[in-house]
Computed example of a mutant assay.
Amino acid sequence: MNAEQLQALIAAGLPCDHIEVTGDGRHWSAVIVSPAFEGKRAIQRHQAVYATLGQRMHTDEVHALSMKTLTPAEWAAQG
């Protein structure tokens, strides 16, 4: 698994206005901006991302994923 593959998996499962994925092949960090996060708490947003990855979260493909999940308005407010 590489960053581009992980990014594509997330983007295929969520409508994303912006997504950045970095990592070393096992430990990942992502910034995900999606209108699907509107009205959802952080845990619900993370669960939505985990759902796009399915069983990969339970294997060595994605050992750890740190996420910053934002709505488009939250992203715009950060500049």
Results as ranks from 00 to 15, higher is better:
Gln7Ile: 01
Ala8Pro: 08
Leu9Lys: 10
Leu9Val: 04
Ala11Val: 12
Gly13Ala: 11
Leu14Ser: 11
Leu14Met: 10
Pro15Ser: 15
Pro15Tyr: 10
Cys16His: 08
Asp17Glu: 10
Asp17Gly: 08
His18Pro: 07
Thr22Leu: 13
Thr22Lys: 12
Gly23His: 10
Asp24Phe: 10
Trp28Ser: 00
Trp28Pro: 04
Trp28Arg: 04
Ala30Ile: 12
Ala30Asp: 12
Val33Cys: 11
Val33Glu: 13
Pro35Glu: 14
Pro35Phe: 06
Lys40Asp: 01
Arg41Glu: 01
Arg41Thr: 14
Ala42Leu: 13
Ala42Thr: 08
Ile43Arg: 03
Ile43Asp: 03
Gln44Glu: 13
Arg45Leu: 01
His46Asn: 03
Ala48Leu: 15
Ala48Phe: 12
Tyr50Ser: 04
Ala51Gln: 12
Thr52Arg: 12
Thr52Glu: 11
Leu53Arg: 05
Gly54Lys: 09
Arg56Ser: 04
Arg56Leu: 15
His58Thr: 13
His58Ser: 11
Thr59Ala: 12
Glu61Ile: 04
Val62Asn: 07
Leu65Tyr: 00
Ser66Phe: 00
Met67Thr: 13
Met67Leu: 15
Leu70Phe: 10
Leu70Trp: 01
Thr71Pro: 05
Thr71Gln: 08
Pro72Val: 02
Glu74Trp: 05
Glu74His: 13
Trp75Lys: 03
Trp75Pro: 04
Trp75Val: 03
Ala76Gly: 05
Ala77Phe: 07
Gly79Pro: 07
Gly79Phe: 04
Gly79Thr: 10
